[in-house]
Amino acid sequence: MTIEEKMEHFRMISLESANNQSAESLSSYKKSLDDDLEVYKDNSKRLAEESKRARINQVKSDCKKQLASSQMAIKKDLTKKQSEIKVKVFDIVRKKIADYRTTPEYIANIKHQIQSVLDEYGDSELTVYIDSNDSALLDELKSDFNCNIQVYDKDFLGGTRSIIPDKNILIDYSFKTKLMEEQEKFAITL
């Protein structure tokens, strides 16, 4: 083989070797880029999912806040409405009490209250108070019952209050007290 042939052969082997190395480098570089692309895609997907989850959680949180705010507003409105209804109901009850106080049944009820106190505590010193608006009944009640009956200086919506001082007992049959007890217990349920 001549030098030129040897040179040509050397050049061919060198070129082939360079091409092989270049192809290997290119293949390696392409594989590295492909790997980097996959890592980038995975990271992008993960970040997108995290961002999506964060947005969903933010929306849920905002919805919960709005729901809580709406519930509070509804409860406030409901409580206000219940209070209004309660006031109206007890205004009606007060009117019915006022109407009842003009009936003979009311006078019979007063007499029954006084009699029940006398039946239980008649042997003790006691004072029975009637409402200031019932002062017209005082003479009739004193003639019917042999006990100390007085007009109370403040209005208690009717009924009677009895005091037995030696036993420290107050018997309160006043409509005002009963009405207050009912107002405390009164609840509107849905």
Rank of each mutant, 00 (worst) to 15 (best):
49 E>N: 09
27 S>G: 12
55 R>T: 03
172 D>F: 04
37 L>Y: 15
179 L>H: 00
58 Q>M: 03
171 I>Y: 05
13 I>N: 14
134 D>Y: 01
61 S>W: 03
62 D>H: 05
5 E>G: 13
136 A>L: 08
116 S>M: 10
68 A>H: 14
104 P>V: 14
157 L>N: 05
12 M>N: 14
16 E>D: 13
51 S>F: 13
118 L>H: 08
129 Y>W: 08
119 D>P: 09
123 D>E: 14
121 Y>V: 11
130 I>V: 08
41 K>H: 11
105 E>G: 08
38 E>F: 01
174 S>Y: 02
73 A>F: 03
91 D>P: 06
47 L>V: 12
47 L>F: 08
166 D>W: 01
151 V>N: 00
189 T>F: 00
173 Y>K: 11
152 Y>Q: 01
5 E>C: 12
11 R>Q: 12
115 Q>V: 04
49 E>Q: 10
100 Y>D: 07
91 D>N: 15
36 D>E: 15
59 V>T: 08
119 D>S: 10
82 Q>E: 12
41 K>D: 08
48 A>M: 05
6 K>Q: 15
11 R>M: 03
11 R>Y: 11
78 L>Y: 01
77 D>R: 08
3 I>M: 12
1 M>D: 00
80 K>G: 06
137 L>S: 04
77 D>I: 07
119 D>I: 05
57 N>P: 10
82 Q>M: 06
32 S>E: 11
71 Q>Y: 10
56 I>P: 06
185 K>W: 00
148 N>H: 15
180 M>V: 07
86 K>Y: 01
139 D>Y: 11
89 V>M: 05
144 D>P: 14
182 E>M: 06
11 R>A: 09
118 L>A: 00
96 K>L: 06
26 L>G: 09
105 E>R: 09
19 N>V: 07
100 Y>P: 02
142 K>H: 09
157 L>G: 06
99 D>Q: 15
188 I>C: 00
183 Q>D: 09
160 T>Y: 06
40 Y>I: 13
148 N>V: 10
165 P>S: 07
88 K>H: 11
150 Q>Y: 10
169 I>K: 04
72 M>N: 12
60 K>I: 08
13 I>H: 15
74 I>F: 00
144 D>S: 15
162 S>W: 12
65 K>E: 04
150 Q>H: 12
73 A>C: 05
141 L>G: 12
50 E>N: 11
10 F>C: 00
134 D>I: 01
16 E>N: 13
76 K>H: 02
11 R>D: 07
69 S>F: 03
131 D>G: 04
122 G>W: 02
149 I>W: 00
31 K>Q: 13
7 M>C: 02
35 D>F: 08
171 I>H: 01
155 D>S: 14
24 E>H: 12
